[in-house]
Structures are given as C-alpha cells and as structure tokens.
C-alpha cells in the first residue's frame, strides 16, 4: 500500500474520529467567548502573527530562489505560515485569549496532542526511511514534522500558562 493511500486513509479516519467525538461527547468546537481584555489580547496576537508571517514571507520571496537546492520555496512558504500561526497562538494563550482551551481543556489538549504526535511520528518515519528532503517541492514530508512540532509547542504553551495561572490564583 502506498504512503499516499495510507495518508488519505489516515485523514479520513481522523475526520471520522472527530465526528464521532463531536456526536458522542457533545464536543461543540472552540468557544469564542472572550471578554474585552481577551479580545484586545487576541487582536495583538493577530498583529504579531501577521507581522512574523509577513517578514518570513518576504525572506522567502527574496532569498528562496537562491536556496532552492537546499530547501524548496513551497517548504519555506509553509514553514513561514506555520511559524506565524504558532506565534499568534502562543501569544494569544499567554495573554489569556486561550483559543477555547479553557472551555474544554482536557478534550482539546488530548485532540491537539494526538494530532501533533501523529504528525511528528509521520515526520520521523520519513526521516528514518531516508525519504525526507528539504528540497522536495511536494512539501508534505516536511510539513508533517513542522505541523507536529507546532501543535505540540502550542499544547506545551497552554499547559505552561495553566500552571502559571494556578500559581498566581487569588494572589
């Protein structure tokens, strides 16, 4: 069975799993009930994420063509976007605009961790079988790894924030 087919089947399986969890456990997605301070914090996080994406995007456009033997433009572009999204998510979480984490923390952490680890395992598999290539124009192989790392880092940021909050509660 080809890796492509395994990927498609895994995607469908994850989709069905999410639908099942949604139906069975009454999980209704990320709740967006932010107060005025959190809305402002989220707006600031958007700005930071956008700025990082813009700067990295510019670097990709300017420096990408000369680096294409080492890393493809599509990989650089996707990595820029992922870093921007991660900056947004971490900044939002650290300033209490928690992206729904606080509404249903256990479920969301479990789902994010599962997705993150699945992607990391996929990425590691590609590295160990020798098919990993930065210069590959089909950015799927690099993306697995980066997406997995980004999702795991976001979960760690939430756990850290949760710990800080518990420590400072009612101080």
């Amino acid at each position: 069975m080809s890796a492509y087919l395994i990927g498609v089947l895994s995607g469908v399986a994850v989709g069905l799993l999410i639908l099942y969890i949604k139906k069975k456990m009454g999980f209704c997605g990320i709740k967006g009930e932010y107060d005025e301070r959190q809305l402002r914090a989220r707006g600031d996080a958007y700005k930071k994420g956008f700025l990082v994406t813009l700067i990295l995007g510019l670097v990709t456009v300017l420096a990408g063509p000369s680096m294409e033997n080492y890393i493809s433009m599509s990989n650089l572009g996707m990595i820029s976007l992922l870093i921007g999204l991660t900056v947004f998510a971490i900044d939002a979480i650290m300033h209490d605009a928690l992206l729904g984490f606080d509404a249903q923390p256990v479920r969301i952490i479990v789902i994010w961790l599962l997705l993150g680890l699945t992607n990391i395992i996929g990425g590691i598999r590609i590295i160990t079988d020798g098919s990993f290539s930065w210069a590959d124009k089909n950015c799927g192989n690099v993306m697995n790894l980066f997406l997995g790392v980004a999702m795991t880092v976001i979960v760690i940021a939430f756990l850290l924030k949760n710990k800080i909050d518990n420590k400072t509660e009612e101080d």
């Binding site: 107060d35 005025e36 301070r37 209490d96 606080d102 909050d165 509660e169 101080d171």
Partner: peptide
C-alpha cells in the same frame, strides 16, 4: 461576565477596564 484573569489583572493594575 469576564474571565478570572481579567479581574486579577485589574486588581494588580495591569489592565485598565
């Protein structure tokens, strides 16, 4: 109708409501 962290930030003087 706000988060606990917002009340905490106001008490600490970190946020002007």
């Amino acid at each position: 109708g706000v988060s606990r962290q917002t009340i905490s930030a106001i008490e600490k003087g970190d946020y002007n409501p």
